[in-house]
């Protein structure tokens, strides 16, 4: 049993050179990254980048050509039953036996895992707010209800890792928001690590603490999201809407360390780069010079823009 490549005990999921070749072509190519306890990590990539294949290899639905996946130190390749017992998953839409009730469906999965009690079933159904619908047949469920039941089945055996492939697929905006809240709550309250893929980048941005970007099966980048600390020395991008752009420009040019990125005399908008502690001074100067300020906004690069930059648009490999 080859296991101990783990150095940090809080690492829940470890991908190590994960590769899938089909007919000589690498669908996933030497992918390696780790996820620690309580982390919510987004897996991003254009269509055909290998996201779903990666997730299916992690849960053992698809065999790997080389490399390994370790979950809590157990190899999916050589020690499948132990490794998978730490994982809960929804791979694409949650599907159930439509002719059975929600309760019967959950009981199916209870019988497959040692140690799941009736009390646990009650607990997870309460968590996803399904206690009233549990006696109905699944075929009468809306997609939103099926998604919730999907989360319930994934949490049933108290996993340490959740694998969610497109969990918000087909949900309406309210459902998406609800799903996001659940996931955050689960990650925080129970310390579960979550790996989630979605093509809704704004969702990923709101949900994840880190993203892993892949393209054509290869790792492009791993980075953290939402560093909320605003270092006073960091350069910010600010957009100003003023009464007279030309006058404002003249004044700003006189100030040190402020660069104008763009100025538009027609809409009277100026985009400039400066440090946070320079903003009050700038506003004061403009006011005393009689330049009216209508708006001050921070210009942030969205994840989408960043994603496009990283992957070079949505090319399908």
């Amino acid at each position: 049993m080859k296991t101990a490549k783990i150095s940090n005990p809080s690492i829940v999921l470890q991908l190590d050179g994960l590769t899938k070749k089909i007919g000589g072509k690498a669908i996933v190519d030497g992918l390696s990254f780790d996820i620690a306890k309580g982390e919510v990590v987004g897996l991003l990539g254009p269509n055909g980048a290998g996201k779903t294949t990666t997730m299916r290899m992690i849960v053992g639905l698809i065999g790997m050509t080389s490399g390994d996946v370790r979950i809590c130190g157990q190899s999916v390749r050589t020690n499948f039953e132990q490794a998978i017992s730490h994982v809960g998953g929804i791979i694409e839409n949650p599907e159930f036996y439509p002719y059975m009730t929600g309760y019967d469906n959950l009981m199916q999965y209870k019988r497959m895992t040692a140690g799941v009690t009736e009390a646990r079933i009650a607990e997870v159904t309460r968590l996803v707010g399904m206690q009233d619908a549990l006696g109905k047949r699944v075929k009468a469920y809306s997609l939103g209800m099926r998604q919730r039941l999907g989360i319930a089945q994934a949490l049933l055996h108290e996993p340490k890792l959740l694998i969610l492939d497109e969990p918000t697929n087909g949900l309406d905006p309210a459902g998406i928001r609800e799903m996001r809240e659940y996931l955050k709550q689960i990650a925080e309250a129970e310390g579960i690590a979550i790996l989630v893929s979605s093509h809704l980048l704004s969702e990923i941005e709101l949900m994840c603490s880190r993203i892993v970007v892949i393209q054509e099966g290869k790792l492009v980048t791993i980075r953290s999201l939402g560093e909320s600390e605003t270092p006073t020395q960091k350069l910010l991008s600010i957009s100003l809407q003023v009464g007279n752009a030309e006058r404002a420009q003249e004044l700003i040019n006189l100030m040190e360390d402020i660069t104008i990125a763009r100025a538009d005399a027609l809409t009277n908008r100026i985009t400039l780069q400066l440090r946070q502690d320079q903003i009050p001074g700038l506003v004061g100067k403009l006011s005393t010079a009689g330049v009216e300020i209508y708006r001050i906004e921070e210009v942030r690069e969205t994840l989408e823009e960043e994603f496009m930059k990283l992957t070079g648009g949505n090319r399908i490999a």
Partner: peptide, 14 residues
């Protein structure tokens, strides 16, 4: 057909 095979095969059962 139901797609339940995905849930069935990700349990701690060979």
């Amino acid at each position: 057909r139901y797609g339940t095979i995905k849930f069935l095969l990700i349990r701690a059962q060979s």
